[in-house]
Amino acid sequence: MGRYRPPRQRGSRYITPEGEQTLREELHQLWKVERPQVTSAVHEAAKNGDRSENGDYIYGKRRLREIDSRVRFLRKRLDELEVVDRIPADTGKVRFGAWVTLEDEDGQEQRWRIVGPDEFDVKSGKLSMDSPLARGLLGKGLDDEVVLHSPAGEKHYWVTGIHYDGV
């Protein structure tokens, strides 16, 4: 057995419709496309004889375990997720799914979308609602100040724009 790892803290269960679609596409790709290909490769490698020194067989079995593990995770996660496909009644406040424009102390602007933990991508401007910055933003309105405490010290941001897709 491997070393003990304590259970990970569960992320929030909210997700955007786009995020849910991405997870469903990944599940389909793994289960219907990739797994049958790897299974076939393992079957062919098993025919070659000594499996203990057969790299294709060893790698294929390892890849099957990885695929099965990810498929189990995705199925469980998709069952418990709640898709947020409505715009909140008060669009003047930062809520889940909002695009938020922030201005820092130097006048630099950043634009973030508040999304679920299963779909965050910092490079494309998607921020997990469980992150410290997003938690500080939730519930704020235009021109509100957000203080982010980090190891480098406090950082101050001001909300300069709030936009929801479809509005």
Rank of each mutant, 00 (worst) to 15 (best):
S12Q: 03
R13A: 05
Y14R: 15
Y14L: 15
Y14D: 10
I15T: 08
T16N: 02
P17W: 07
P17Q: 11
E18V: 05
E20W: 02
Q21N: 05
T22P: 03
T22A: 12
T22W: 04
L23K: 10
L23H: 08
E26D: 05
L27E: 04
L27M: 09
P36N: 03
Q37E: 12
Q37F: 01
V38K: 07
T39N: 11
S40F: 12
A41D: 14
V42P: 12
E44S: 15
K47A: 09
N48E: 14
G49E: 05
G49Q: 06
D50E: 10
S52V: 15
E53R: 12
E53Q: 12
N54P: 06
G55P: 01
G55S: 01
G55I: 00
G55L: 04
G55R: 01
D56A: 03
Y57T: 05
G60F: 13
K61S: 11
K61I: 15
R62V: 12
L64Y: 11
R65Q: 14
E66T: 04
E66S: 03
D68M: 05
D68H: 07
S69E: 15
S69C: 10
R70T: 00
V71S: 01
V71D: 02
V71E: 00
F73Y: 15
L74I: 06
L74K: 13
R75Y: 08
R75G: 13
K76E: 15
K76T: 09
R77S: 13
L78F: 13
L81G: 10
E82G: 00
V83G: 05
D85H: 13
D85F: 14
R86A: 13
I87P: 08
P88C: 13
P88W: 06
P88H: 08
P88T: 08
P88M: 10
A89P: 02
A89W: 00
T91S: 03
T91Q: 08
G92P: 00
K93G: 09
V94I: 14
R95Y: 09
R95A: 15
R95F: 09
G97R: 14
A98M: 13
V100C: 05
V100Y: 01
V100T: 03
V100N: 04
T101P: 01
T101Y: 04
E103P: 02
D104T: 00
G107W: 05
E109S: 07
E109P: 03
R111H: 00
I114D: 07
I114M: 10
V115A: 07
V115L: 08
E119S: 06
K123R: 09
S124T: 09
G125E: 07
K126V: 01
L127M: 11
L127H: 05
M129C: 02
M129W: 01
D130T: 09
P132F: 02
L133K: 03
R135C: 03
R135G: 03
R135W: 00
L138C: 01
G139Y: 08
K140Y: 10
K140Q: 07
K140P: 10
D144R: 14
